[in-house]
């Protein structure tokens, strides 16, 4: 055994990856707003009427956010969600999901050397359509 492939059932994979993607997008928006106008989690919490601790958990990606909350968080940041459902092309429904949404998180990310500068999201194109 020179390599081992981890497995997860497709349903769980699709769901957890989408949840993570949503959280990443909210963090990306928050990082950009924080960098440009110093918005804080407390200010976001105040705008949507909850506590900073709740916003922090949601931003960390620990929560399965409902559609309402996603819209509220992005609204508080001055952003809006964009969602599109799409039929999986025939013949390609037997593998992990296609990615075609932004996959780059913000450049907010604190590094050991400081904070990275802002960059544009990178999009992954459809490779199998």
């Amino acid at each position: 055994m020179n390599s081992f492939e981890l497995e997860i059932d497709e349903k769980s994979y699709v769901a957890s990856m989408f949840m993570a993607r949503v959280a990443n997008e909210i963090r990306r928006a928050a990082a950009i707003e924080k960098a440009s106008r110093k918005i804080t989690q407390q200010e976001i919490a105040n705008k949507i009427g909850t506590s900073r601790a709740v916003v922090n958990r949601e931003m960390q990606g620990l929560e399965n956010l409902g559609a309402r909350r996603i819209a509220e968080l992005l609204w508080a940041l001055g952003w809006e969600p964009y969602f599109e459902a799409r039929k999986i092309p025939a013949g390609v429904n037997d593998g992990p999901p296609l990615l075609s949404q932004p996959v780059i998180m913000p450049p907010e990310l604190k590094t050991s050397q400081g904070t990275l500068s802002l960059k544009s999201p990178v999009y992954v194109s459809h490779s199998s359509t």
Partner: peptide
Amino acid sequence: VRVTFRLPRGQ
């Protein structure tokens, strides 16, 4: 042991 994982199409 190399750990791998079937990445989504496009990755």
